[in-house]
Design a protein around this nucleic acid. Sequence first.
DNA 1: GAAACTTGTCGAAGCGCTTCGATTGAGGAA
DNA 2: TTCCTCAATCGAAGCGCTTCGACAAGTTTC
Lengths: 330, 330
Amino acid sequence: MAAPGRGVTIADVAARAGVAASTVSYVLSGKRSISPETADRVMQAVADLGYHPHAGARSLASRRAGVIAMMFPIRDGMHLPVLMQFAAGAVAEARRHDQDVLLMTADEGPAGLARVAASAMVDGLILMDVEVRDPRVEALRRLGLPSVLIGFPADSAGLTCVDLDFTAAGRACADYLAERGCGEIALLGASEAVYERRTGFAERVREGFLSRPGLRAEVRPCPNFPMEVQRAVKELLAARPDLTGLAVHNEPAVGHVMHALADAGKRVGEDFHVVVIGPDEVAERVHPQLPSVLVPAETLAQTAVRHLMRKLDGFDVPDSTLVEPQLTIR
Amino acid sequence: MAAPGRGVTIADVAARAGVAASTVSYVLSGKRSISPETADRVMQAVADLGYHPHAGARSLASRRAGVIAMMFPIRDGMHLPVLMQFAAGAVAEARRHDQDVLLMTADEGPAGLARVAASAMVDGLILMDVEVRDPRVEALRRLGLPSVLIGFPADSAGLTCVDLDFTAAGRACADYLAERGCGEIALLGASEAVYERRTGFAERVREGFLSRPGLRAEVRPCPNFPMEVQRAVKELLAARPDLTGLAVHNEPAVGHVMHALADAGKRVGEDFHVVVIGPDEVAERVHPQLPSVLVPAETLAQTAVRHLMRKLDGFDVPDSTLVEPQLTIR
DNA sequence: GAAACTTGTCGAAGCGCTTCGATTGAGGAA
DNA sequence: TTCCTCAATCGAAGCGCTTCGACAAGTTTC
């Protein structure tokens, strides 16, 4: 348990178990068959000495670092809590595969990818919040570093991408509202900036939302500031007096939308229905609590890590994985 | 630029520059003097080949991994965006010191610390959101892994701790309100759970808030749910009719507090004053925008990383560093 | 003009691990 | 019994880097 001095090595373990170092290695990796008795003795020695293989040595000899990198965007408009959930999910899953996670920010860009790849610091990479045209994607292709992307770039050929099925999410919202008897509905979407940047995601929601027949539906981008949100809602209500259903795909706006509706005399949950695309807390922390389709950050992270692990082990994985959205009714 | 095959090694660089591998190493590390001409040739070769040293080999030979770990809490009541800012700040600063950052979650606990320490995977550690009685702290002491804590455990002897000066933050709020002419003020604090868990932080705010003489001040913990927050505010107003100043140290509650005040006919910024301890967005996204003392996550992260770097380089750093709060008026 | 340093460079010895034969006994097949 | 196979183990050769001691050429110093 207690480390005797500094650094217990495989040789120490071997000596204590009365075997060769290579035998210890084989016991630990399971790459050759070892008699149960020997294995027991080795494991006992490992436990006694509190042995953990030196990561550097291992990576040097085996050409496997046991580390994957995650590159995060730290950009305007990103919803930080979701990123954090994502990170937590990824770390948890990675640890299940005995991998650690190196944290990178998008600031490092393609050069950062080149660096970690060339230094063999990581075995693979998860790239978050991929944009439609993303310079990192090209770098990734060039480097041949095993990777999984969250989101879809314009050309995803030869890449492994994972994302929420935003089309289905949009449709789920329309369905929910339709089932509550709304005939005229609207989607208050992401801010303009988001639409400009990564069309993919926002447009898919739009498409899904508009895809349900028999409804009068429209989509509007949503402004950034509280007062403007309220004004936008008021304008919408004025322009469409028969509107009875609203989907909101914009975390920070939800609270303000609810005020504006209350001010306008709409009784949400009774004569007017609202559904949110966003994290649970957002939908829970307003009154009344709203139904929501969340971005299942944890599931996405898990899926991404699993795919990456399979790639590292030489298996094939689907090029594109869309996670089904879940609508939670509160 | 383009990698020829797989893996450019120091030997390749040496060959191209016409020197010994050790010379390349010395050029890169600056640990021995090298003639400018040779250095140039080497650097040119490095650039030509896109050489990056193999991290594992380097760590094996030099006993320095070039990686620091950050252990994050993923716990209830943590404000995720702040954590993320923290992470971003730490990564940025670490990169400035040519270090990478390994992400760990508190789930791994003391055993996780033992693992990364024994495997020489990281050179040092930053431990976030330290609790008053934290089992990880003891493990840290035992392991002798260089580390910096964010927050203060009960016994911080021999440790390096960094945190916001919460006492000063509390006082700054009281000062702000006093300057606006409020004679009777209150602090709506963290939720009960937080008080129970890490007394340090919440109590320091309380202490600071109550420390200004000549004011009638009180502190109340704040409930978790929207309706209860509103009720709590109403009760407070009823109990203290002369109350004209309120400090809120509870991110999710701010919006609801503002409603309750509006409902009660208080005109914030005119006959009633409110100040927030929390992130900018929280204070900006209500109407009217509020002054706030933020938890300077980025600064704290930077300070923590710098301290850790200095420790790794064998310098002394102060045991305890309190970052001055800044009050932003909007 | 010899002794004593400096400066710039090289070669070799590891760092701790994995992995590739090689080796040794047993157990089976012939 | 002899030969072959197979399971279990060992020893040695690296993986790519840093670092230590040497050493050849200057530079000083007396």
